[in-house]
Simulated assay, not measured.
Amino acid sequence: MPILQSTFKPLFQFKNGFVSTVYSGILRKVKIEQKRERIETRDEDFLDLDWSYSAEKSNQVIILLHGLEGHAQRPYVTATAKLFNQNGVDAVCMNFRGCSGEDNRFYHSYHSGATKDLDDIVQHCIKNKNYSKIYIKGISLGGNVVLKYLGEDRVLPQEIKAGIGISVPVHLDGSSTELQKLKNRPFAIRFRKHLIDKLKIKQKQFPEQLKDEHLKTLKTLRAFDDFYTSKAHGFKDALDYYTKSSSLQFLPNIKVPTLIINALNDSFLSSECYPVKEAKHNDNLYLEMPNYGGHVGFIQKGDVYYNEKRALEFVRQFDTHN
């Protein structure tokens, strides 16, 4: 599809990408009531799902995926759930393995290209919850999972009507390089701390694989992916993981209406993360590149962020075709 012209106009103080990223990620608050459900995965692990519902019984649900080291209570997740609930759509917020407050059962956990858990949730929504319309929205890492899932070599259930990816590092190697740069140092340090803390918890269950001397060498996010993420999930190294898990290569195969919103001042994204060519050659792919927004920081006047409003508008756009 042609590249979409963005109408996003941030408040003046949020034109700065760093400010909007920090404010939306750390300072924003959203109140919502959620009910937790635990389901078993196909490999005998578990997933914790946090549900919220519309006032009236709905046949529609939006599945929401958080970003790196996030969880289902992060405001960028719950705000979308709340908005969709207010507009007649139930919401299920997925916690990636190990992100719900309890470590998962295995040495492996989650990564940017792991789509089987998302498929398990989709099947759960269809077979056990009887939803006839499913929308899927992912943020950052979660967005990469969504786009890869939609473009992989599988027959998608007809119940899936639309996909949305926000601030998506569709080229993981490029995004990893950006995160190593000085401009992103505060974010990289924060991510690394959370990841190392998770490994220290997992170390109790797998002491031989996660020795203290190993953890001390993980000075960067790429080193973490080289040591743990890649090896734990069957890749040779970080580059192999990035190459095979990047959603960019799967975008041409997407066959359901899918919206990507990546801000041009997102310091986490490399030039390859703006898939203009892929969008122009796929009638189902809609790419919007606002000048502002930082990383998941599309702050506008009021309680609803621009990317949340656009997600609702986008799925409504295709209701008549369902």
Rank of each mutant, 00 (worst) to 15 (best):
K116V: 05
D197R: 15
A72Y: 02
A81L: 03
A238H: 02
S132W: 00
G174T: 09
F206L: 09
L4C: 10
N130R: 13
A91S: 14
K181P: 04
H281Q: 15
D153N: 14
D45M: 11
A188V: 03
L64V: 05
L287K: 11
L259A: 04
A72P: 06
L259D: 04
F96I: 05
H194G: 14
K231A: 05
Q34M: 12
E44D: 13
F106R: 12
S20H: 05
A223G: 14
P157G: 13
N265M: 11
E272R: 13
C273L: 10
I260L: 15
P75I: 08
E308P: 06
H295W: 14
N322M: 00
K15T: 04
D283Y: 11
V256G: 03
L210I: 15
H71G: 14
E33K: 14
I26R: 12
S58E: 03
E102K: 15
Q73L: 07
K200T: 10
V30I: 14
S167T: 05
N59F: 01
N322I: 00
F14L: 09
K244M: 01
P169C: 06
H194S: 15
Y110V: 06
S6F: 04
L264M: 15
D45K: 12
D237W: 01
I189C: 05
N307L: 12
L269N: 11
A188F: 04
L64Y: 00
S6P: 02
Y76L: 06
A81S: 13
P207E: 05
G174R: 08
K29W: 02
P257V: 08
Q317E: 14
R154F: 00
L239M: 08
G143T: 07
H321D: 06
T229C: 03
A279M: 11
I139L: 15
W51P: 05
A72T: 05
N262T: 11
Q86N: 14
F191D: 11
N95A: 07
R36L: 00
Y107M: 13
N284V: 03
L179A: 10
K202T: 10
V22K: 08
F314C: 09
T80S: 12
L83P: 00
I32S: 02
L47Y: 04
T80N: 10
A238S: 09
D225C: 01
W51N: 02
N95C: 09
Q158R: 07
H321W: 00
N95K: 09
F314Y: 08
R190C: 08
A162I: 06
E288C: 09
I121Q: 01
E288P: 06
T229D: 01
K204M: 07
